[in-house]
Design a protein around this nucleic acid. Sequence first.
DNA 1: TTCACTATTGAACAAGTGTTCAATATGCCG
DNA 2: CGGCATATTGAACACTTGTTCAATAGTGAA
Lengths: 209, 209
Amino acid sequence: MSELPIPKHHRVTQEVRREALIRATLDCLAEAGSDGASVRKIAARANVSIGLINHYFAGIEALVAEAYRLLATELLESIEKAVEEAGTEPRAKISAFFRQSFAPPNLDYKVLHVWIAFWSMTRRSHEVQSIHDETYGAYRTVLEGLLGALKDQSGDQEISVRLAAIGLSALIDGLWLEWCLNQKTFSPDEAIRLCEAWVESLITVRSGR
Amino acid sequence: MSELPIPKHHRVTQEVRREALIRATLDCLAEAGSDGASVRKIAARANVSIGLINHYFAGIEALVAEAYRLLATELLESIEKAVEEAGTEPRAKISAFFRQSFAPPNLDYKVLHVWIAFWSMTRRSHEVQSIHDETYGAYRTVLEGLLGALKDQSGDQEISVRLAAIGLSALIDGLWLEWCLNQKTFSPDEAIRLCEAWVESLITVRSGR
DNA sequence: TTCACTATTGAACAAGTGTTCAATATGCCG
DNA sequence: CGGCATATTGAACACTTGTTCAATAGTGAA
């Protein structure tokens, strides 16, 4: 009887391995927050040895930074997809933005703890800080585009699109943060209603003059 | 020449020592975020040995939980003080609330990292979770009181004070969070203006019917 | 002044962390 | 099939972490 050779490990493309490690990092962060992002836990989840992380990344900090970039990018992509599927009407697009923001998988207290881990790193790591700046800027730009379309349509020139987008993104983030920290205070539906009210007030108040 | 005895340490009231340790914890958290809250760093800052922490607190987690309670309480107290000093006019009181929220020492990126450290603990520690629930509930209650007074004055019965307070606190938190993470996107003054606009829209939209 | 209480100390411990690097084994190419 | 490049391994390292507990020393009372 010849023993069939069970390979202890196998090789994959650099790209594949990198993404697997990044995904494992997000999983670990979602499961245990900041404490989850240790080389040993990440390596275990990716079915890989500890040493491999430093072969693909400059250090654990760089790996977490890449995970930040992936999460932020995928969040924005999922929102943009929902917005596009909502048709051409600006007002309907914005509603789709809200619904996507306050629904799984984006609205998830586990995901909050991933963001919290990232935020806590903005201080130490310039890399993480600039990834935040980039991705949050992109997020606000999308919001500005939607609010700008609404402005063009209503013909109202008094709305500051920039400020409106800043306020709206803050409202969304604040509601999202608080809901994740305590789901009993209000419902996701109420959060959406509050966002809708913000947009309505932008239109109604000014055009009522 | 008799050597003058330099005491290696001195005793203080339990209350005094406890508060000193809690204050040292807040300092450490402000200085280095979650990483700052280690028994050794806290003990060093409080000029005390490592062992004393476990003499006064069940563990490092309990100490950090107490620090949470103190920070949240003092934040709310500082805001309530500013509100009371603003006079009796509901609208002016709310403005004072905003100005106090977006001014030092409350608006400080170092303080953000203290909050972040607390948020990251809500998952592990039921104690921290319930302190969050309590203090955030108190915060929203104050806001509800102010918005309720505004509602009584305007005679408008359509405003849901509860939802308005939830939205407003989310807006404040979101603006505060984002400003602390990146001071270049908007100014504290603009944040205040956005909050004022929220209140205005509550009044104007409905009473315009 | 002496005593006794206890606040305070700090060494010891086990467990965790990130990084390094020589050794290994895998899969491709000739 | 044989050989090579290198992806992958995991032990070793120097740290940091929170908790424990016997020993120490400050301080008010007798």
